[in-house]
């Protein structure tokens, strides 16, 4: 009890100004990229500064942090996915490759947060659907190691896609898709996802539905 109280008193209040989005791709017109744009608009009009880490980016260069291995189409990530899905047992080489890229991505996350002095991160679907296992695992370890305030925005889950049902990575899925850590607040896009996240993982969450374009609020 004394140890817990000491830990609580040592915790510093977070003064949040700089916010870092993290995803596999933040570019083009896919749903996740569009939603990031809307969230960033809302944040910036409330005087927060937004930054972006992904494997593909079309945001302002001075706010961007490109990490090629974060992309789900990176050849090494595609190879890992091929080795993990559609079979029930994993090769040792696949575990090694996954861990190696995970460590590299975790290093990149530390560099990103340091470079832009980021106070809060928003992983966009990267901790929900396993398009990039090493990225999700790196994020989970990074959050566990730093305790950084995190809003995990979830658009899809692995259990919604039949192609993920037969796999050799239940341990990875349970670790990172989604993770359950004290500094993460979970946001989903509809009430069905909310119920499923609570039912399957016991994780409480908040529903924030996708937005209509900006014109709606100006009418």
């Amino acid at each position: 009890m004394k140890r817990i109280m000491t830990m609580l008193t040592q915790q510093q209040p977070h003064h949040i100004k700089n916010i870092g989005f993290i995803s596999t791709r933040i570019a083009g017109t896919d749903g996740v990229s569009l939603e990031i744009q809307k969230w960033a608009e809302v944040l910036e009009r409330n005087r927060y500064h937004c930054f972006y880490l992904a494997g593909e980016l079309d945001r302002a260069e001075e706010k961007s942090f490109l990490v090629e291995e974060a992309h789900f189409e990176h050849p090494l990530i595609q190879q890992i996915n091929n080795d993990l899905f559609g079979r029930g047992q994993r090769k040792g080489e696949t575990s090694e490759a996954t861990q190696k890229i995970k460590d590299k991505l975790k290093g990149a996350l530390y560099g990103y947060v340091k470079k832009f002095d980021i106070h809060l991160i928003i992983p966009e679907n990267a901790l929900s659907i396993p398009m990039n296992f090493p990225l999700g695992m790196a994020l989970t370890e990074f959050i566990a190691e730093t305790g950084i305030p995190t809003i995990a925005h979830r658009h899809d889950f692995s259990w919604e896609r039949p192609r993920f049902l037969i796999n050799a990575c239940v341990d990875y899925l349970n670790m990172a898709f989604p993770p359950y850590l004290p500094s993460i607040k979970h946001v989903v896009i509809n009430s069905i996802a909310s119920e499923q996240l609570s039912f399957k993982r016991g994780i409480s969450n908040l529903v924030m539905m996708h937005l209509f374009p900006q014109g709606l609020s100006n009418r």
Binding site: H15, N46, Y48, P149, V187, M208, F212, R219
Partner: peptide, 30 residues
């Protein structure tokens, strides 16, 4: 009907709705 749908969308899917929830969520960390 169009006006009815617009009012529903404004109530549940506008930037102001997101703003209220998201800023509150961020401030809960502070």
């Amino acid at each position: 009907m169009v006006e009815h749908n617009y009012q529903i969308a404004k109530r549940y899917f506008s930037y102001e709705v997101l703003e209220e929830k998201l800023i509150h969520l961020i401030r809960a960390f502070e």
